[in-house]
Nucleic acid binder design. Sequence first.
RNA 1: GGCAGGUUGCCCGAGCGGCCAAUGGGAGCGGACUGUAAAUCCGUCGGCUUUGCCUUCGAAGGUUCGAAUCCUUCACCUGCCA
Length: 423
Amino acid sequence: MSIDPTLLDDLEWRGLIAHSTDLDALREALAGGSVRFYVGFDPTAPSLHMGNLVQILTAKRLQDAGHTPYALVGGATGMIGDPKESGERTLNSLDTVKEWVERVRRQIEPFLSFEGANAATMVNNYDWTASLSTIDFLRDVGKHFPVNRMLSRDVVRSRLDAGISYTEFSYVLLQSLDFLNLYRDHGVVLQFGGSDQWGNLTGGVELIRRAAGGKAHAFATPLVTKADGTKYGKTEGGALWLDAEMMSPYAFYQFWLNVEDEKVGELLRIFTFLPRAEIEEIEAEHAEKPFLRAGQRALAEHVTTLVHGPEETERIKAASAALFGGGDLATLSAATLGAALREAGSASVDGDEDLPAVVDLLVATGLAKSKGDARRTVAEGGAYLNNARVEDPDHVPGPDDLIDGTWLVLRRGKKNFAGVEVR
RNA sequence: GGCAGGUUGCCCGAGCGGCCAAUGGGAGCGGACUGUAAAUCCGUCGGCUUUGCCUUCGAAGGUUCGAAUCCUUCACCUGCCA
């Protein structure tokens, strides 16, 4: 595998380097051969999300450029909890963490290559941390961490009033130890992570210098936020999950398709592997005719393909075209409509009996979270049956409403579709 | 262990015996305007067999015709002292 000398320039152009240790030194190291690097993922949920995807894709960029990935899953750090500003985390049981470690590992693996000269390696910090004695930990690791310096970290300082446990306070030691171990045992000399990890990243670099007299590098990727600076992830149920069980690929695709104009270029650079020229072309086109949403379309298609694969993406595109095409739903066949609605979300009911009322259908399809919510939606004029506004919450659809004898198309608001299959 | 303050709906945060399903802000949701964009304006925002009923204000008891509001105990959080 040859080394791509343009890697660092590309990362900078994409805006992927928000902070870094000595960039010139890193440039030199990357030019000198396949650099062993690592990036860690803590199992704080059953699935990774948008923020983690930045790291996964960045790892792939480095591997594609000839460098050697060590993907770390935090079986140990996940037991402790990285301090966050909003407050103390709830500790998860060992069993829960172990299960999440496995799920997270399986999510990462498809993105990396485990073959060839620069094959990736999966590691779990539980392996070298679980048996570590308290005495050794305090003498060998703790001795290198001045508490005054630890206290000055932003996250820690922000927690001094509300309180922070010794457990979370110590987190940085564990992550730093990971870097030191990977440096000693595998020759890993680079770590990157999200910008919120900056303190932990530099902690490791410094530990390597103090404990092993070594030189290591680190950089942080930017925090991806909405145009107004707030966090993404307020979509249904919270974060933008990569797991298809936790967020349907259709919803995932729709998320990217609905991104603000101002963010399209930035997101294309961070989340796609499209080359610079192509991205700039899309941006120019988008700037000229934003209403065509070419940027969002390219973004949604590429990211969904990366995460859920090309076949699924094609199905979603077809579904979106059918539902948002603006044509008359009645002209669609049951097969086409069914395929689209199954992507968007659907429920089925028994056709031998009277159909449920619209409010009940809204709840059954998940478009409304309760009957009260459903009634409210109808009262607000936000409920549609086959693209016609529903006025009466107790309205019962009849046989004539069935498209191609099978489907009812429900919609809440402008863009939330769901199907009801009558059989 | 002592003293003080706190625990309210998704989040922040008012309420301090009846007018409280509970002020206000944010997020969310719907409508209008649009381009499945942003901004803006309006509405909505516990549940239900929905002009009324039910269950909520850390937990459990109690006082009262009536409690998120008063009392007791417990749990947890914060600060000061030991």
